[in-house]
C-alpha cells in the first residue's frame, strides 16, 4: 500500500488542482474522451447521493437506477419531441402502430416542464417510496431487497410498453437540446462544463449537509435508530429526506448521462446497473464524497477499458473487486488515502 501521508503538504492544494484539471479538460481531451469523462461525472453525481444514504444513513439502495432512469427518460422524452416535425410521432411509435401521442408525453414538449420534471419526478418518487417503507419501520436487508424489486419492476415496465417507451431499445437519436444542436461545435464542451459545475455544486452542498445537525442525526439513526427515537426524534422524516435527495441527484445524473450518451434504455437502469452504482461507491469509499466521485470515474474507466477488450470478463472482475473491497477495505480507496484501511 503506498504511503500517502508523505503527500500531506499537498492536501490543501489537491482539490483546487483537480478542479483546474477538470475545467481545462476540454482543451486537452479529444471529443470522444471528453464525452466519456462527462458521462462518468454524471454518474459521480448519482454516487454522491449514495454516500449520503448508504455511507451516512446506513440505507443500502439497489434501486438507484430507477431514479437515474426517471431523470434520463424525462430529458429523452423532451428531446424526442423537440426534434419532431409538427403533427408527427416518434419513429418507434409509428412502427408499433400507435396513432397518437400518449397524454403523459405532451407536457415534455415544454423545456421548463422538462427541467422541473428532471428534478421533481425522481425526488417525489423517492420521497413517496421511502416514506411508504420507512414509516412501517422496514429497514436493512429488507429495504435493499425492496429497492431491487423496484428496479426490476421499473425496467420490466419500460420493456413491456414498447409502443410508448421505446421498449428494450430505449430512446435514442437525439439532435438538439433546448434549441442547441448536439453536434454543433462547442456543445460538447459546454455540456461538459455544465456537468462539472453541477457535480461541484452537489459536492459542496452535501458536504455542508453532512456536517450539519441533519448529518449528525442521520449517522445517529444509522448506528442506533431506537436510541434516536428514545431521544425524542422521529428518524423517519430524516431518512425520507435523505433518500429523496439521493433520488434527486440520481435523476439529475441520469438526465446528464442521457444527454452525453445519446441514449437511455432499460439496460442502463435495471437491476445490474443499479448494483454497479453501489459498487462504484463501495470501491471509492462509501463514507467519502470525494471517494465516491473517484470510485465512479475509476470503475467506469476500467469498465470501458476492460469490456471493450474482453466483454465477458467485466462482470466477474467487478464482482471480485466488490468482494475484495467489502471484506478488506470497508472504507474503500478513501480509507487508503486517509491511512486507515478499516
Amino acid at each position: 500500500m503506498p504511503d500517502l501521508s508523505r503527500l500531506s503538504p499537498l492536501k490543501p492544494v489537491l482539490p483546487w488542482a483537480l478542479l483546474a484539471l477538470g475545467v481545462a479538460a476540454p482543451f486537452a481531451l479529444s471529443s470522444y474522451d471528453l464525452n466519456l469523462l462527462a458521462r462518468f461525472m454524471a454518474m459521480g453525481i448519482l454516487a454522491l447521493g449514495l454516500v449520503l444514504i448508504w455511507g451516512h444513513g446506513g440505507i443500502l439502495s439497489l434501486g438507484q437506477g430507477v431514479f437515474f432512469g426517471l431523470g434520463g427518460y424525462a430529458i429523452a422524452l423532451h428531446m424526442k419531441l423537440a426534434d419532431l416535425p409538427a403533427g408527427e410521432l416518434p419513429d418507434f411509435m409509428v412502427w408499433s402502430g400507435r396513432e397518437s401521442l400518449p397524454f403523459w408525453w405532451t407536457p415534455f414538449a415544454s423545456p421548463a416542464f422538462t427541467l422541473a420534471a428532471i428534478i421533481l419526478l425522481p425526488t417525489l418518487a423517492g420521497a413517496l417510496f421511502a416514506w411508504a417503507v420507512f414509516h412501517r419501520r422496514v429497514g436493512g436487508t429488507y429495504f435493499a431487497l425492496i429497492t431491487q424489486a423496484l428496479s426490476l419492476a421499473f425496467a420490466t415496465l419500460i420493456i413491456s410498453r414498447q409502443d410508448v417507451t421505446g421498449g428494450f431499445n430505449g430512446l435514442t437519436d437525439f439532435y438538439s437540446i433546448f434549441g442547441v444542436g448536439l453536434a454543433s461545435p462547442g456543445t460538447g464542451s459546454m455540456l461538459y462544463w455544465i456537468t462539472l459545475t453541477i457535480l461541484c455544486v452537489a459536492f459542496v452542498a452535501l458536504r455542508w449537509l453532512l456536517a450539519s445537525r441533519f448529518g449528525i442525526l442521520l449517522r445517529a439513526a444509522r448506528d442506533g435508530e431506537n436510541r434516536v427515537r428514545f431521544l425524542g426524534y422521529n428518524p423517519t422524516p430524516f431518512k425520507v429526506a435523505a433518500f429523496a435527495i439521493a433520488a434527486m441527484l440520481a435523476g439529475i445524473g441520469g438526465a446528464l448521462f442521457t444527454l452525453h450518451a445519446g441514449v437511455v434504455s432499460p439496460a442502463l437502469i435495471g437491476v445490474v446497473p443499479s448494483i454497479e452504482m453501489v459498487v462504484w461507491v463501495a470501491i471509492g469509499g462509501r463514507y467519502s464524497l470525494a471517494g465516491a466521485i473517484v470510485g465512479a470515474l475509476l470503475v467506469n474507466l476500467a469498465r470501458d477499458a476492460v469490456s471493450s477488450a474482453f466483454p465477458e470478463l467485466w462482470l466477474y472482475l467487478m464482482g471480485a473487486l466488490f468482494i475484495f473491497v467489502v471484506t478488506l477495505l470497508p472504507r474503500g480507496l478513501a480509507g487508503i488515502a486517509k491511512g486507515k484501511a478499516a
Binding site: L209, A211, S212, R213, F214, I216, L217, A220, V228, L231, G232, Y233, N234, P237, F238, A241
Partner: peptide, 15 residues
C-alpha cells in the same frame, strides 16, 4: 442531539 429542543428535520439543516 439529546439537548435539542426542536426535533423536526427541517430545523436540523444548519450547524
Amino acid at each position: 442531539l439529546a439537548a435539542r429542543r426542536d426535533r423536526r428535520w427541517w430545523k436540523s439543516l444548519g450547524s
